[in-house]
Structures are given as structure tokens and as C-alpha cells.
């Protein structure tokens, strides 16, 4: 069977998350049954094909969440109900939801792969501490939904903004330290800018806590053969996108230090 080929589907709904972020809902059985943290290659016909986290799964539908940044993400952002997109995947490994006390650290559209995880954890974990960061209040997405999901379980939510327009003023990583000093966690899940994740990982190391972080690299094939998304000996598309502490240690010479551009040239963070 040929599976690594775009399945054409139509946009069923467009959800305005912020002035620059939208979620697109589409019908796709495989994606609706994906594991939390998995991603898809989304073909925007005539424009590009880009990796996107699955942020919504319900019935036979799935959704992605896109911030308009470049040409491809803007084209996806501008898609209307009824527009055709092509989907390959779901690809990659996934977050491993655990039973216990968990911390979730997310920022920006890094929250996208964390949302399906959050829903699973609600039914599983003893407690959830959710730390959400952003530059400014405008950028926050999913907040109502996060609050609603978290209301079903023992939880705490901390919000930080760099400009102080919402929650605590400062970086998301500043908010974590006092919490880690007070409470013992069984797992930290994180997705967001790589430098943030690096900091989260380093702090977790200090407190001897395990981490699962969802990484991002330039992706082309999505199936582990072209090598574009390599980090150390791993391919983010196949061995990731979720890297646990032991894998993060193995790629410490690259994680948070450099990535590769479309030519394969190393670019410093």
C-alpha cells in the first residue's frame, strides 16, 4: 500500500486562535487517531508542504494550528472552509503520558502538540502544573481550552509574558524554578522555542527530573530518509519529534546550539 502520499481533504472549519494564529479542522481518520505529539506533512497545493503538529483530535477529524510567519504558513493561515489540503502522516514518535505529577511547559504554537497530551493527562495524572509563556498577551492561544481541561483535575496554571501584559512578567523559565524547588515532579513535558526547551532541560537536570521535549528541524521527506532534520545521529521526523532526557543528552552538542537550514548548513540559535 502506498501511504506516504498526500491524502486530499477539505478544511471543515477555521478557528481564530489569535490575530496571527488559526486552527484548521479537517476530516482524516488516521490523524484523528494519532498519538499525542505526532505530526503531519501538510501540502498546500502550489505553495509548499510543511510539518505541522496535530493539535486537535475528535471523532474522525483532526486539526492543526498555524501561526502566519513565512509564505507557506501564511498560505495555510489564509485557507478557507472548503479549501483543499493534502495530508501525509501522522509521523514520528509521541509523548509518553505517565501517571503521576507532571509539569507542562509550553510557549506560542509550541502548545499545539501539547494539547492532545493535556487531554490524555487529565484522565491519567495525579496533578498537572501548566506553565505557559509568551512575549505578550496578544500571542496567547488555547487559554480558555487549557483552563477548561485543567478544571477537571488537580492542577495549577502559571502564565508569563515578557512585557508583563498578562500573568507574571518575565520568561517562562523564570517561573519554573520556584515551582521546582517546592514540588517534586515525575515528568516535565515541553514544546516551544528551542532555547526555552534547552533551559527547561537544564533545570530539570539540576533537579534530576525526566523531560520529554518536542523538537523542530527542517523537514522534507518526513519518513527518515532524506536526513534534512538530523540532530546528532537522529532524525527528528522518525526518531522524534519527542526526545526524552537520554536522547537529549546524546544530542547535547546540537540541541539549543545549532540547527541546519534547507541547504544543510549549520545555523547557530
Amino acid at each position: 500500500m502506498v501511504s506516504n502520499r498526500p491524502r486530499i481533504t477539505r478544511v471543515l472549519d477555521v478557528i481564530e486562535e489569535s490575530s496571527t494564529v488559526r486552527s484548521l479542522l479537517f476530516k482524516d481518520k488516521l490523524c484523528s487517531k494519532a498519538k499525542p505529539g505526532q505530526f503531519i506533512m501538510v501540502w498546500i497545493p502550489g505553495v509548499d508542504e510543511i510539518p505541522m503538529s496535530i493539535s486537535i483530535m475528535r471523532d474522525d477529524q483532526a486539526g492543526l494550528t498555524v501561526r502566519k510567519v513565512g509564505e507557506a504558513s501564511t498560505a495555510l493561515f489564509n485557507m478557507k472552509v472548503g479549501s483543499m489540503i493534502g495530508i501525509r502522516g501522522p509521523y514520528g514518535n509521541s509523548f509518553n503520558p505517565i501517571i503521576g505529577k507532571v509539569m507542562i511547559v509550553g510557549a506560542g504554537t509550541g502548545l499545539a502538540p501539547l494539547m492532545p497530551l493535556l487531554e490524555i493527562l487529565t484522565n491519567k495524572s495525579a496533578s498537572i502544573d501548566m506553565i505557559v509563556g509568551g512575549k505578550t498577551m496578544e500571542e496567547f492561544i488555547f487559554m480558555d481550552k487549557i483552563k477548561e481541561i485543567l478544571s477537571k483535575t488537580e492542577s495549577k496554571i502559571v502564565v508569563t509574558t515578557e512585557d508583563g501584559s498578562y500573568g507574571i512578567k518575565g520568561l517562562v523559565t523564570d517561573a519554573i524554578l520556584p515551582i521546582l524547588k517546592k514540588k517534586r515532579f515525575d515528568m516535565i513535558y515541553t514544546c516551544g522555542p528551542e532555547l526555552m526547551m534547552k533551559k527547561v532541560f537544564e533545570m530539570a537536570q539540576e533537579f534530576n527530573l525526566p523531560v520529554q521535549a518536542s523538537l523542530e528541524r527542517v523537514m522534507k521527506c518526513g519518513i527518515g530518509i532524506c536526513g534534512s532534520c538530523c540532530i546528532g545521529k537522529y532524525n527528528v521526523c522518525k526518531d522524534g519529534p519527542v526526545f526524552d532526557s537520554s536522547k537529549l543528552k546524546e544530542v547535547k552538542d546540537e540541541f539549543g546550539l545549532f540547527r541546519r537550514d534547507h541547504s544543510g548548513k549549520r545555523v547557530i540559535f
Binding site: V2, N4, W43, K220, D261, S263
Partner: peptide, 18 residues
């Protein structure tokens, strides 16, 4: 010289190959 290559899609599966 460095080359970024083509835009995606750069790969698609067909029967019996890629």
C-alpha cells in the same frame, strides 16, 4: 556553492517506490 534545493513536496510515494 550552497543550494537550498526545491520547495516541498520533495518526495512522494508511488507503487513500488518513491
Amino acid at each position: 556553492k550552497a543550494r537550498v534545493g526545491y520547495d516541498n513536496p520533495t518526495l512522494v510515494e508511488v507503487h513500488g517506490g518513491y
